[in-house]
Write a protein that binds this DNA or RNA. Structure first.
Ligand SMILES: [Zn+2]
Ligand SMILES: [Zn+2]
Length: 388
DNA sequence: AGTCAAGGTCATA
DNA sequence: TATGACCTTGACT
C-alpha cells in the first residue's frame, strides 16, 4: 500500500474511483487501473450495458461492478475517447474486422465525429490566464459534448461510431431536451464558480429562465456550424428539419388529425423567422464558439429578473462584465478583429432575436395545447423545477 | 537526465 | 477473459 502520493504538494485522487491517482490520463485525473480500463474500452470498441439504472456507484472497492457506469463516469469526469490512439499494428485479425466494415477504414476518425470547423477552435493555453471564464467554458463544453454522446447514444449503437444525424419528431425532441437538462445544468456549474455557489432558489430561477432560449440558440448555432441553416440541431446531433415540419409535428403514435397545410400555417412562420433572425445572422457573422459562450453568459445571468436577490444581481453583473472584458481581449489579441465594437454589438444584438423567436414558438405551442394534441411541454417544464 | 502520458505485457482473479 | 501492476516508448523540457 503506497498510500496517496504527493504531487506538487497536492493529493490527487482518481476522478472515477477515488483511488490515489498518479497523473492525467486521457483528459482526467485518474488511477492507472481506470486509465487502462478506458483505453481498453475505446481501443477494442467495447459496448457495455447497465443492469441497473445507469447510476451505479463507481468507487475503489466496487469499481468493477458495472462497466457501463464506470465508462460513463470516465466520460463525465472529462476523459476523451479521441485521446486513445489507433491500434498501431494492423494485425491480420484487425484487417478481417475492417473487411466486415468496409465503409469505416480508419477507427480513429470515428473518435472525431464533429466536423473540424475553425469556428469551434481552442485557444492556446498561453491565453488561458487572460480569459479564464471563456477558457473554462470551452474546456467543459468539450466534456459536455462527450457526455452527450454517451447519453443520447441510441440503444444497440456502437458508442464510438458517429451516428448519422437524423431528423427527429416533436416528441423525440422534447425527450432529448429533457434528458439534456441535467447535463446542461452540470455544464453551467462547471462554467461558473459563482453559479455553483448560489442558493438553490437563485440557481433555479436563472437556469429556468435561460434553458429554453439557450436550447434553441444552441440549436441555431450548431446548425450554423454544420452549414445546414434549415435544421435546428439537437444536443444528440439529430435535428429538426424545418423544411419538413409535417413529419416533425405529426408523430407516428399520435392521430394525424392536422393536415400538412395546417401544420405549415401554424408553425412555419415562426420557424422561418427563427432561421432568418438567428441562424442566418450567426452564419453571416461567422459566430465562433467563444462568442457563442458570451451570448450564453448574458442569457443566463439575466439581472433584470424580478425574483432574484440583490446579491445575485451583483454577482451576475460582475460575471457579465468579466466575460465581456474577456471577449474584448479575445477579439483584440486572439481573433484580431478589425472593429471589435461593431462586431460585439452585432453579436449581442442576436439575443433579442433569440428571445423573440422562442416566444413565437412557445405561443405556437400554446395554440396546439388548446387543441389538446401535445402535452409534453408540461412534463418538460415540470422537470425543470426538480433540478439542483 | 527527468517527467509525463501514451501503449504493451502478463500473472492473477 | 478482464483486470491492473509493471514495463517500454517517445515527446517535451
Ligand atoms: Zn480509478
Ligand atoms: Zn450501472
Amino acid at each position: 500500500m503506497g498510500g496517496p502520493r504527493f504531487k506538487d504538494k497536492v493529493f490527487l485522487k482518481c476522478a472515477i474511483c477515488q483511488e490515489s491517482a498518479e497523473g492525467f490520463h486521457f483528459g482526467a485525473e485518474a488511477c492507472r487501473a481506470c486509465a487502462a480500463f478506458f483505453r481498453r474500452t475505446v481501443s477494442n470498441r467495447k459496448t457495455y450495458s447497465c443492469q441497473g439504472n445507469n447510476d451505479c456507484d463507481v468507487t475503489i472497492n466496487i469499481r468493477c461492478m458495472c462497466r457501463a457506469c464506470r465508462y460513463i463516469k470516465c466520460i463525465e469526469v472529462g476523459m476523451n475517447p479521441a485521446g486513445v490512439q489507433q491500434r498501431l499494428p494492423p494485425s491480420k485479425t484487425l484487417v478481417e474486422v475492417s473487411m466486415d466494415l468496409p465503409t469505416v477504414s480508419n477507427p480513429s476518425i470515428l473518435s472525431f465525429p464533429s466536423p473540424p470547423s475553425s469556428l469551434m477552435l481552442h485557444i492556446p493555453s498561453s491565453y488561458s490566464n487572460q480569459m479564464p471564464i471563456l477558457d473554462k467554458m470551452r474546456k467543459s463544453y468539450e466534456t459536455l459534448c462527450n457526455a452527450r454522446k454517451t447519453l443520447h447514444r441510441k440503444d444497440g449503437a456502437n458508442i464510438f461510431q458517429d451516428n448519422v444525424p437524423k431528423p427527429v419528431t416533436y416528441k423525440k425532441a422534447i425527450d432529448q431536451g429533457m434528458k439534456d437538462v441535467k447535463l446542461t445544468s452540470d455544464w453551467v456549474s462547471w462554467c461558473f464558480e459563482d453559479f455553483k455557489n448560489l442558493s438553490i432558489d437563485q440557481k433555479k430561477i436563472l437556469f429556468h429562465n435561460a434553458y429554453t432560449p439557450y436550447f434553441m440558440m444552441e440549436g441555431g448555432f450548431l446548425s450554423h456550424i454544420r452549414n445546414t441553416p434549415e435544421h435546428l440541431v439537437m444536443p444528440s446531433g439529430d435535428y429538426i428539419d424545418t423544411l419538413d415540419l409535417n413529419s416533425f409535428y405529426n408523430c407516428s403514435e399520435s392521430d394525424r388529425q392536422i393536415s400538412s397545410k395546417e401544420i405549415d400555417r401554424l408553425f412555419k412562420p415562426s420557424n422561418d423567422r427563427f432561421i432568418k433572425s438567428v441562424t442566418l445572422p450567426m452564419m453571416s457573422l461567422q459566430l465562433d464558439i467563444f462568442e457563442f459562450f458570451v451570448l450564453f453568459t448574458l442569457l443566463l445571468w439575466d439581472t433584470g429578473l424580478i425574483e432574484i436577490s440583490e446579491e445575485c444581481i451583483e454577482i451576475g453583473t460582475k460575471v457579465k462584465t468579466q466575460v465581456l472584458k474577456e471577449l474584448d481581449f479575445y477579439m483584440r489579441n486572439v481573433k484580431k478583429v478589425e472593429e471589435p465594437l461593431v462586431r460585439t454589438a452585432n453579436i449581442v444584438n442576436l439575443l433579442p432575436a433569440v428571445q423573440k423567436g422562442v416566444r413565437r414558438i412557445q405561443d405556437d405551442l400554446e395554440v396546439t395545447k388548446v387543441f389538446d394534441l401535445y402535452t409534453a411541454s408540461d412534463e418538460f417544464y415540470n422537470l425543470m423545477s426538480g433540478r439542483f
